[in-house]
Every structure is written in structure tokens, then in C-alpha cells.
């Protein structure tokens, strides 16, 4: 890097900088993952065991229409 390049760069050291990402975040334009709506995306939800210490006794895949299919775990206490 030449001396001229250095001189052309804004001096950031000791300067108050505003964040580049803030305007989007402040106007609702920023997109978080939950804001992305991908056409045809599958949705999932995790059903956690209601038992703190249990063995999985079986896992059954229930058939049905794609949008209503779910895996079901049976817990044994």
C-alpha cells in the first residue's frame, strides 16, 4: 500500500462511526430468518419429550399427506 492510498482512506481511528447496518434494522427492512418466506418451504416443529429422563421406546412414521406428516416418538418412563 502506497503512502497516497493511506492518505486517501478516511481516518477511522478515534472517529465516531455510525453502523452501516442500522438504517435497515431501524426501519424494519432488515430480514431475519423468520422473515424469509421461501416458496414451497417445509415447516417443522419439535415436540419435546414431556419426561426429563426417559428412553425412546419406538419411533413411528405416520403416513399421510405431506403437510400433515409427523414423526411420533413414544416415551417409556
Amino acid at each position: 500500500m502506497s503512502a497516497t492510498d493511506l492518505a486517501a482512506r478516511p481516518n477511522v481511528v478515534g472517529t465516531r462511526m455510525l453502523r452501516k447496518e442500522d438504517p435497515e434494522l431501524l426501519t424494519g427492512e432488515a430480514r431475519f430468518v423468520a422473515d424469509l418466506m421461501v416458496p414451497g418451504a417445509c415447516h417443522m416443529a419439535v415436540l419435546r419429550s414431556p419426561y426429563a429422563h426417559a428412553r425412546i421406546a419406538s419411533v413411528r412414521l405416520l403416513s399421510g399427506p405431506v403437510h400433515a406428516r409427523r414423526d411420533r416418538c413414544l416415551y417409556r418412563c
Binding site: 455510525l18 447496518e21 442500522d22 438504517p23 431501524l26 424494519g28
Partner: peptide, 15 residues
Amino acid sequence: AFRQNHALQCGYCTP
């Protein structure tokens, strides 16, 4: 004022 005062980081609670 939020921008000038750095009142946000990840921005999720900001709106």
C-alpha cells in the same frame, strides 16, 4: 436517535 446513540446491536428488539 437510536442510530446516533448506538441503541441497537442485533436489531431484533429494535422495532
